[in-house]
Simulated scan of single mutants.
Amino acid sequence: MSLKKASILIITILLIDQISKIYIKTHFHLGEDIKVFSWFHIAFIENNGMAWGTKLSDFTTLISDRTAKLILTLFRIIAVTGIAFWLVDVTKKKKSKILIFAISIIFAGALGNIIDSVFYGILFSDSVMQVATFLPEGGGYDSIFHGNVVDMLHFPIWNGILPEQLPLIGGKHFSFFDPVFNVADMAISSGIGILIMFNKKAFHETSKTDRSDSESHSNPN
Rank of each mutant, 00 (worst) to 15 (best):
residue 105 I to T: 02
residue 203 F to R: 07
residue 172 K to Y: 13
residue 122 I to D: 01
residue 182 N to H: 08
residue 71 I to W: 01
residue 65 D to P: 12
residue 107 F to V: 01
residue 78 I to Y: 10
residue 157 I to V: 15
residue 110 A to G: 13
residue 140 G to E: 00
residue 51 A to N: 05
residue 30 L to K: 09
residue 55 K to T: 10
residue 8 I to P: 07
residue 99 L to D: 02
residue 11 I to T: 13
residue 94 K to A: 08
residue 40 F to V: 11
residue 42 I to N: 07
residue 199 N to D: 07
residue 175 S to F: 09
residue 206 T to W: 15
residue 148 N to Q: 14
residue 144 I to M: 11
residue 206 T to G: 15
residue 59 F to P: 05
residue 191 G to C: 10
residue 150 V to P: 00
residue 76 R to E: 06
residue 220 P to W: 09
residue 204 H to I: 01
residue 116 D to C: 02
residue 45 I to H: 00
residue 3 L to F: 15
residue 68 A to S: 14
residue 102 A to S: 11
residue 7 S to C: 08
residue 106 I to T: 05
residue 14 L to V: 07
residue 86 W to I: 13
residue 47 N to W: 03
residue 19 I to F: 14
residue 8 I to C: 09
residue 111 L to C: 06
residue 200 K to W: 09
residue 102 A to K: 05
residue 38 S to G: 09
residue 32 E to L: 04
residue 98 I to P: 01
residue 175 S to M: 15
residue 97 K to V: 08
residue 122 I to F: 02
residue 38 S to R: 11
residue 184 A to C: 03
residue 11 I to L: 15
residue 169 I to P: 00
residue 26 T to P: 02
residue 41 H to S: 08
residue 141 Y to L: 05
residue 155 F to W: 12
residue 137 E to T: 11
residue 154 H to T: 03
residue 92 K to L: 14
residue 19 I to R: 07
residue 45 I to G: 00
residue 141 Y to W: 06
residue 162 L to M: 14
residue 137 E to L: 12
residue 122 I to C: 01
residue 158 W to S: 12
residue 207 S to H: 09
residue 165 Q to N: 14
residue 25 K to H: 08
residue 64 S to W: 08
residue 88 V to Y: 14
residue 23 Y to G: 08
residue 197 M to P: 04
residue 152 M to T: 01
residue 184 A to D: 04
residue 111 L to N: 00
residue 202 A to K: 03
residue 63 I to S: 07
residue 113 N to P: 01
residue 120 Y to Q: 00
residue 217 H to D: 12
residue 16 I to H: 01
residue 13 I to N: 05
residue 139 G to V: 05
residue 221 N to H: 13
residue 12 T to I: 13
residue 212 S to A: 10
